[in-house]
Amino acid sequence: MEDAGTHDACSPDLLYLKSSFLAMEPADYFISLARQSDGGSITERVQTFILEHCINSIEDKGTACNLTYMKNILKKVITAAESTHDVVVEGLYEQLAYYLTSHMDDDLLIEKNRIYRQISFLCSSGHDDKCLNSMNLVVPLQCSLNMLEGDTGCALWPSSLFLSELILSYPMTFSNKFCFEVGSGVGLVGVILKHVGASKVILSDGDMSTLENMKLNLELNHLASETMASQRICENPNMVECKHLPWESASESELQTYHPDIVLGADIIYDPLYVPHLIRVLSVLLRPLKFCSSERKAGDLSCYRCTRTTEDMNGDNSPNEAKEAPNAYIAAVIRNMETFNYFLKLAAEASLSVLDVTATMKPKNLLPYMLSYDRSSVHLYQVSFSCI
């Protein structure tokens, strides 16, 4: 028989609280969730949960966690409880004193300016499932500690979270597809693509340090990384190819060899200097292998620009099985309208159609505990070659 304490710890609000802690959500958001867990104040029940299922459980499992964050959480929890005259659980004081007086540091994480976050995708509300069964997918990631210090490629951006939710919400769109991501950053989208069964995944980035961090994150998620295309990638279902791809110097002949089914990008429309190079890369990756014939029979509305065949893909004599034309899904927060309009202008000149599908391809809310993640700020665009 399940005791009351176990049942209490499995409540959705407390599951969200632990997920927030593992994701290293900002302390103020964590405290907000803690208040919501018990009617507006941080009661002894909530404090005990934080102590046992957040602070102590991290230590017991030896999970790397930024100690500055731990100390900040403890201070905030104690201050919030004291402000409402709630009794503070003694263990919280003891833990804070321990961290304040110890000479521990974050070892290599401090040197690398990195922290570990665990992003939990909750594929149910938690009301029907028991306890952590509701936590269907947990993705550990090494991320930048300070993304404003020239380390933006190792930061976790809202658009990357949005694309991940999208893939998990529409798994059949990406299952058994060759997916190519440009500007892959920490590699979260690649992990999710493998989770839903993408047949092949290539992650790319123009920064070598970001690429190395991405490979580490793949290893953390039990995926193997390969920097060069090889037969092993096809044979190993857990293999992901990591590609150094500076947009400005990417070879068109090399890009033409990939033929992905789907191209993805998160927060890649950010600098007007790079927009022309991005458009060129997208144009090559999305270019169909057959183009519209200048001569078509009357009434023939077929357009070879919109299809590919197995013969096109394999160069063999197999039957010409029609395949959908490649398209891209780009998630973006529009921070500079002038830059985005420039992207649209160059896309039109390159015969690329950019369609806002935010309203028609809404992802499920799989990150309900991430109060810092503003899903409404992200737009989703489908990019493909125009059919003329």
Rank of each mutant, 00 (worst) to 15 (best):
L355P: 02
F21H: 00
F30A: 01
D151V: 10
D128E: 14
L367V: 02
A350F: 06
P363Q: 08
G185K: 08
L289D: 02
V46K: 03
F121T: 13
L33K: 09
M70H: 06
C306V: 02
D151S: 10
Y373I: 12
C154T: 09
E311R: 15
R280N: 15
T358V: 02
I31W: 09
G315N: 08
I269V: 14
K76T: 14
L216N: 06
Y329S: 04
F291A: 07
D106K: 05
A97R: 13
C154L: 08
P140Q: 02
L366R: 04
L15T: 15
K345M: 08
N66G: 02
A155H: 04
R232P: 00
M208W: 14
T339P: 00
D106S: 09
D261P: 06
L22P: 02
F174P: 05
H259G: 07
S83L: 05
W157D: 00
L255V: 13
S283E: 06
K71V: 05
Y99E: 02
S294L: 10
L92Y: 02
I42T: 01
R335T: 02
A322R: 12
E338F: 00
L346A: 07
T48I: 06
F174N: 07
E165I: 00
A250D: 11
M172Q: 15
V275S: 00
P171K: 03
A325N: 04
E59F: 14
G190I: 12
C234Y: 11
P368F: 07
L168R: 02
P140T: 02
L218F: 14
A348M: 06
Y99W: 12
C179L: 13
G299K: 13
C306Y: 03
A298R: 14
R114K: 11
L273H: 12
A348H: 11
E295N: 00
S293M: 04
L100A: 12
K345I: 01
V357Q: 07
E82M: 05
V201P: 03
I279P: 00
C131P: 04
Y93R: 08
Y373T: 10
K362P: 08
S160Q: 01
S125I: 11
M337Y: 10
I279G: 04
L33F: 05
P237E: 06
M147Y: 15
T152K: 14
K215M: 13
F178E: 10
S19M: 10
A250G: 12
A250C: 13
V138W: 03
H195P: 06
N217R: 10
M70G: 03
P26M: 04
T63W: 09
A9M: 07
L273S: 11
Q231M: 12
S294R: 11
D151A: 13
G91D: 00
H7R: 14
K290G: 03
N238A: 00
T101Q: 11
V89S: 08
C303N: 07
Y274P: 01
R45W: 03
E219K: 15
E235A: 07
K364C: 05
G299C: 11
E212M: 01
P140S: 04
I119S: 08
C234R: 10
A325H: 03
K76E: 15
L17K: 07
Y69P: 05
D106N: 15
V139I: 12
D106I: 04
S225I: 00
I58L: 12
L148A: 13
N236A: 04
N327Q: 13
S120N: 13
G150C: 15
Q382M: 10
G183F: 01
D374V: 14
G190F: 08
